[in-house]
Computed example of a mutant assay.
Amino acid sequence: MTDPNVPPPRDDRPDVVHHTTINNPSTTDRGGGAGWIGFLVGGLLVVLVIIAVVVFSNGGLNRTTDTKVDLDVDLPAPTLPEAPKMPDLPDLPAPSVPNPEPAPGN
């Protein structure tokens, strides 16, 4: 008895089947997708050169050798207005604390 779900065997197939697919895209179909990578790498190189110039030239391209500083500066000190006087505190008697009624048992 044969299974009705299995197709009948075919004898016209070869023993070895070779499938080879070769895709050769033409150069006109590429669309230039790699151009932005070169632009990005070039921009990063320019930024690195600018950083290197700033770091290795002590902060900039124009350096001065004159470092004399004149420390003779006379500035008047500001005067503050008088603070208002606070009123005297009234004399109040010390508060009285009542004794606890049941004495604590020690």
Rank of each mutant, 00 (worst) to 15 (best):
D3E: 12
P25E: 03
G105W: 01
V46N: 02
K85G: 05
T67Q: 12
G42H: 01
P100R: 05
L40C: 03
G31W: 00
P14H: 01
T64H: 10
P14Y: 02
P7W: 03
V97M: 14
G42L: 13
T65R: 06
T27H: 12
V54N: 06
G43F: 07
F39M: 13
A83G: 05
P93N: 06
V6P: 01
L61K: 05
E101H: 05
S96D: 14
V47C: 11
P14G: 03
D12Y: 13
F39I: 14
V53G: 06
V73M: 00
T20K: 14
P81F: 05
T65A: 07
T28L: 01
D3M: 09
N58C: 02
N23I: 13
T67V: 13
S57E: 04
D12K: 12
H18D: 13
L89I: 02
G42W: 08
A103I: 07
P87F: 10
R13W: 15
I37A: 02
P102C: 00
V6I: 15
R63C: 02
N5D: 10
N106I: 09
P25D: 04
I50P: 00
N5W: 05
N62M: 14
L75G: 00
L89D: 07
A34R: 00
G31H: 01
P84Q: 09
V53L: 15
L44E: 02
G38M: 07
P93S: 11
T21K: 11
T28H: 00
G33T: 14
T64M: 06
P102N: 02
P9M: 00
V49L: 12
F39E: 11
P87T: 11
P9D: 01
G60S: 00
V6C: 02
P100H: 02
P100Y: 00
D91H: 06
P87D: 14
A52Q: 03
G35L: 12
P81C: 03
I22C: 04
A83S: 08
I22R: 15
D70T: 06
K68E: 11
V53C: 09
G42N: 10
R63G: 05
P98M: 06
N99Q: 12
L75H: 02
H19C: 08
P8W: 05
A103R: 13
W36A: 11
G42R: 04
G31N: 04
D29E: 12
R10C: 07
P98T: 11
V46E: 02
A77I: 05
D72E: 15
P7F: 04
A34Y: 05
V16C: 06
